[in-house]
């Protein structure tokens, strides 16, 4: 089973949580894998639709910025860039050195956020709809915009 964990929380958690707190938070992440975890406003919000698509095919953000995905459909979706979850080579691509991410199942109205720390082009997909539902995030160096 892959860890259902937004990168930002994975990076910050040891700074303010003891091991017990970590365990509780980790279990909580398993039970509700797709709750917004950041205090910053996301740079971009992307919807996930009943017609099996992400509402923005390609978005551009800067390093350190957060993207939020909202499941605005009645269908379960995921936001995934993890080779362990992909069955088709063209479904995903990560920049060199970038960590994989996977939201887990997002029920209707649930959200998922991910903060991008490595520049480059991220191709991601929805696990149950891998054949049809893919999109791209392009991460540029900070300060470029």
């Amino acid at each position: 089973m892959s860890l259902l964990w937004p990168t930002r929380i994975g990076r910050l958690a040891p700074q303010f949580l003891g091991s017990a707190g970590l365990l509780v938070l980790w279990m909580g992440a398993l039970a509700t894998p797709a709750v917004a975890q950041t205090s910053e406003e996301p740079a971009v919000t992307i919807g996930m639709t009943n017609t099996l698509s992400f509402t923005k095919d390609t978005v551009r953000v800067e390093v350190g910025e957060t993207v939020r995905w909202e499941n605005s459909s009645v269908i379960v979706h995921t936001v995934t860039a993890d080779s362990e979850e992909a069955t088709m080579e063209e479904s995903m691509r990560l920049p060199e050195g970038a960590a994989p991410f996977h939201s887990g199942n997002l029920a209707p109205d649930e959200t998922f956020e991910y903060t991008f720390e490595t520049p480059g082009r991220y191709r991601y997909f929805c696990v149950p709809h891998e054949a049809a539902m893919r999109a791209t995030v392009i991460v540029e160096p900070a300060g470029k915009g």
Partner: peptide, 8 residues
């Protein structure tokens, strides 16, 4: 196996 494409 999955028999739908883009736009379902």
């Amino acid at each position: 196996e999955y028999v739908r494409t883009e736009g379902y």
